[in-house]
Nucleic acid binder design. Structure first.
Lengths: 139, 139
DNA sequence: ATAATAAAGATAATTCATATCTTATTAAGA
DNA sequence: TCTTAATAAGATATGAATTATCTTTATTAT
């Protein structure tokens, strides 16, 4: 019941990028350093982000990644789904037919309900919410 | 971002028990059969449930497990926490000090917020909600 | 004494998370 | 043009957690 380190790093990495002037080419090395994450792992994560299209990648010297979307449009749900795959709280949450207890599953409705609540919450935040220092909240 | 098989089995097992007359001694064998789950795994799960106190266990012939609480009091959150441990969406969700980016963590507030929403949803359902056939919802 | 049950512990299989290593690509400079 | 350094892409490896299974022991009703 948690997001992966990879999703956490991806979110932090995208927030870092969104804080730079639009169009800035960022190196994994710098993204990793500024987010306290392992560079080699971050590299893998940004490969996945690039495949999804929300960042662009450029290989070779002076290559790197650029943010390829409006930070407002990139919700936390979207990032988590790109990295961890679809959010499925329980295997029977999606549809009853994929459930082992098909046709007689007591809990299907509950998981569908809770999942809806969770995904709504994840959709209510975007990368843009963290891209300015204004947003800081004290403990 | 999902509950474990173990939690799923635990919930189904407890629902099965709650459907029996109060005080009924249930065998793991029967619980497993009626929930389409592996008996040996279910056995382990019920050991954990017994340790937590929400079921009682009796060894020996005619031994088994009894439901040791009001099904209304056993929320889904409680079961998941007994089996999977505390619900922590992201390691920095609990408190900022446990976060690698302590003192400068953009996303702490978000995870604390989403976690609160999720745990509230998990607390809004209890085993009792599924212990009668009245509750059935069509797809 | 026997059979039925759970408890406890050991082990195994599989999957997933978390990386690291090697290769390909490119820009820039010699 | 050739070499080098910097970079991402892709392949591989490690380790931990999940999901079991199996075996032995303890307990108890018959």
């Amino acid at each position: 019941m948690n997001i992966s380190r990879a999703s956490d790093y991806a979110i932090r990495g995208l927030v870092y990028m969104a804080k730079q002037p639009a169009g800035t080419v960022c190196y994994v090395k710098d993204i990793a350093k500024n987010t306290n994450s392992p560079a080699s792992f971050m590299s893998k994560i940004f490969q996945t982000l690039a495949k999804s299209g929300i960042v662009d990648s450029f290989t070779g010297t002076k290559g790197g990644f650029t943010f390829n979307a409006c930070p407002e449009d990139i919700t936390i749900k979207k990032v988590v789904e790109i990295i961890d795959g679809p959010i499925v709280l329980n295997r029977c949450a999606v549809n009853k037919s994929s459930c082992r207890n098909a046709g007689n599953c007591d809990v299907h409705f509950m998981w569908a309900d809770i999942q809806k609540i969770l995904t709504k919450a994840l959709s209510s935040y975007s990368i843009a919410d963290f891209a300015t220092d204004k947003k800081k909240v004290s403990d």
